[in-house]
Amino acid sequence: MTPDTFTRSQWYAIGRLPDFEGAEAKPVRLLSQDLTVSDAAGVLSVNDADGRSLLTQIRYGHLWTTLSDTPRPLYDMPEFDEPDRRLVTVGGVGVRCSGLRCVENFLDMAHFPFVHTDILGVEEHPSVESYDVSMDAEKDEIWATKCKFFQPMASAAASGGQMTEYKYRVPHPYSTILYKTCPIREDVWDLVGLFIQPVEEDECIVHSFILVFDEENTDTGLLHFQQNIFLQDRMILENQVPRKLPLDPRWELPTRADASSIAYRRWLKANELQWGVALFNEAA
């Protein structure tokens, strides 16, 4: 299947800047297409298999490109310009599933006690209280707010359990950002997010980042914390059947805790997204 218009019109992160230092036609795969990245004296360029030069931009610590000549603008994250924040780019991790599944898993709090046991959740506190899900019509993005969850070790900087407050944002079919209570500062949010590079309909590379106020941990400490968490998710993601995301509500049965996942699936459907989606008649 060729990518639908909504999928094709997006910008995609394809790696961190240091990944392309001195690159000479380094192969990269995006939306089932072979691309190459080259570094000419610090200027990065991306070409498709026919040698056509693609649009690029450098933002949020990553190189972004698009197959479209008239892409939707890349969403804003003003927090990247705030002083004193630390940015850790975690590196691309390959996962054998649709990148859409990765977004949905990231939005999900109910799995914390079982997949991230004793880090992001404990089995004694599995309950997910109601939270708000809304659409920002102007920016065409999803927000889940007033999410609260009991966490024994919400971040590398946390000491001891706490009720952590979360906000989730989905500004792009393959990006999602978590805003969470900062354990050491009031009135600010720490950010953790995924920039997903869809490789095939059922295969992706997940580039994640952390943008936090943290005076205690080394960058490597933050990196290990995040990579450990993501590898816990990866085993789940690689064992969900089917590997593409089903949008038909008859196929996978949600509950109230899945309100953000329901909104996400509806939003994808409303935008007529088809690439990476499992069709109901494939279920049998």
């Binding site: 799995h111 079982f114 969900q240 949600p254």
Partner: peptide
């Protein structure tokens, strides 16, 4: 396959006479 989010039940945990899915319990 768990009917909730499609997780393989073979990763689940047996407790007594129930099977618990690894993903959301």
């Amino acid at each position: 396959r768990c009917p909730h989010r499609g997780m393989r039940l073979s990763y689940g945990i047996v407790r007594g006479n129930t099977l618990t899915c690894l993903y959301h319990g």
